[in-house]
Computed example of a mutant assay.
Amino acid sequence: MSITYFPFDAVVDSDGNYDRTYTSEQFALYFSKLFSNGVYGADSTGLQVTALNGNMYITVAAGAFFINGRFYANDEDENILITAGDVHYGRYDRVVARADFVNRMCGVYVLEGTPSANPTEPNLTQTADRFEIPLATIYVASGATSLTQYNITDERIGVYCTLTGFTASDYFTAYSKAYQQFSDEVQEKMNTQFSAQENKTNAQLANQQVEFSHLQSAVNEWYQGVLNDISQLQTFDFDNIASRIGATVTSNITDTVITETMVLNKVKIAERITNIGDTVIRCVTKAWDSDGSHVLLNSTTETTITDDVITSVVSQN
């Protein structure tokens, strides 16, 4: 059976030695019965990890902790540089409070994780030589050169760490701040994506307008070509006959009427009168015998032109 009791003042014996001495183990045992492992103090920001100015630095706030009866305190904020992101994969780093019993020291350290397609947080060491409790995890994305608070998860309140003096109001305040930051970052990303989509849509509409203009020009060109083909076709038949028999053709052209007369040996043997309207072209062709005494042909061709349909009707008398 082992019984421990202390502290009592030591008495100097006759040899000048103190009759009672106490070890750090005894004091650690004493404090471990009073304080559980964790961040200590009434200030909820004690040893809180935050991102610093949009770079790869983090700030560990001033604060104190107990681990297995060992005490650590820092009265100033501490800035720590986090390694930039891996080229290919993300990783998790872990900020821990550590008591090193071999080297007889306590402090705050960063455990750097391993980049992976499915990264996990580094494991804590909790042995007789070294004992760690988590303060925060940090997600470092692939290629990251800066951090935001959204990348940092507070672990001071959890299985391993009891934050003494942390009230329900402090819990709510911390949650509200984290949620507001998350909401702001999501809104910013949504605004950026909406703006990019709007620009993309406007560019597509502009391209479609250009394509429509080109198509409209092509249709107009085709339509004019059709009109030219009709005119050339009707003139071609008339002139071809005249050329074949050696006749002479004369034309009289006004704004809406074309009159063509075919003469052979000073006798009118054919005539074509073309009336050109907005949507209708009416062509009347007459032909006589060689002395001009009998009508051999009397035909009418009426061509109707709409936006996308051309219709021709031929009638003979």
Rank of each mutant, 00 (worst) to 15 (best):
Y30V: 01
T192R: 07
F8Q: 12
Y57N: 15
P7T: 03
D229E: 13
I241T: 15
N37K: 04
T145D: 14
T45Y: 02
G16T: 01
E198Q: 12
N103E: 13
R91M: 04
V102R: 04
V39Y: 00
T125A: 12
N240V: 00
I138M: 05
K266C: 00
A206C: 01
N265H: 02
Y89D: 11
M1E: 14
A97N: 04
T279R: 08
T192G: 11
S176W: 03
P119F: 03
I281Y: 03
Q316R: 08
A144H: 04
F66Q: 05
D86S: 10
Q234I: 12
E188I: 01
Y139E: 06
D170Q: 07
I305K: 04
Q193V: 03
D129M: 02
A99S: 12
F166N: 06
N68K: 11
L29E: 14
N17K: 11
G107T: 12
A28E: 09
S243F: 13
D229M: 09
I241L: 09
D75W: 07
T23I: 00
D43K: 06
I3S: 12
Q149T: 05
L296I: 15
L205Y: 13
H88Q: 14
G107Y: 05
S231G: 06
Q224A: 14
T50C: 11
H294Q: 11
V284S: 05
G143F: 06
S2H: 13
F166L: 09
T45H: 13
R20T: 03
N228R: 09
I138H: 01
Y179L: 12
